[in-house]
Design a protein around this nucleic acid. Sequence first.
DNA 1: ATGGTAGTCTAACTA
Length: 256
Amino acid sequence: MKIASWNVNSLNARQPHLEEWLRLRSPDIVGLQETKLEDSRFPDTALVEQGYRSVFSGQKTYNGVAILSREAARDVQYGIPGFADEQKRAIAATIGDIRIVNLYVVNGQAVGSEKFEYKLRWLDAMTGWLADELKAHQNLVVMGDFNIAPEDRDTHDPATWNADSIHSSTAERAALRRLQALGLHDSFRLHNDKAGHYSWWDYRAAGFRRNLGLRIDLVLVSEALKARASGAHIDREPRLWERPSDHTPVWVELDD
DNA sequence: ATGGTAGTCTAACTA
């Protein structure tokens, strides 16, 4: 079973890419981020024709998350419970025997900015929520665009992406460690300990061609699912297509 | 070179 995460940077702009990629890889479950679509404009009918049901929480221009699945989703949660947020960044659902949480974590712009403080508050609220989710669901997948590179080996240049930089700062990494300490494992690192594997490259300065990237898109799995995780992948293929997203899909493979 | 590109929407914000 293949469970994937992809920040599409506008589903309107990337619908052809998504449809092509679904045909190419046949994932069972996909979490999308930055759909940038109001719910009334979500292309759920077109996706049904490809064999995927969808649940989604979006808004115009910014943010927006969705979960696509071959099987119907149940017990859908929109947003972080008890955390008032105008921005559509979280959605969760149960599919088969697996609880899926799909996140578009706040970017944060710059360490010390107002947006950075919002990022830390958001991460704190999200972690509290997921502690409860873990109590209720032993089979939990938490995926998305985390906007945090977990370690130096997840950046192309630790001098640029340092303790004071957005995406790699001490406070952000500590917040991610607190989440993982609940018992959530970075599926990519179960199978690959090397540097140089990224999921995002800046559109500017030919970032992809020069592999100047960050690994900020993660699929975390609970202890019970760690035992079933047989592989994890970063799929660079869609980044080679015309008009790509700046992020590329990542996934975990679970034994049935 | 303190830049660069892309999406949404046509000015400026976000990433």
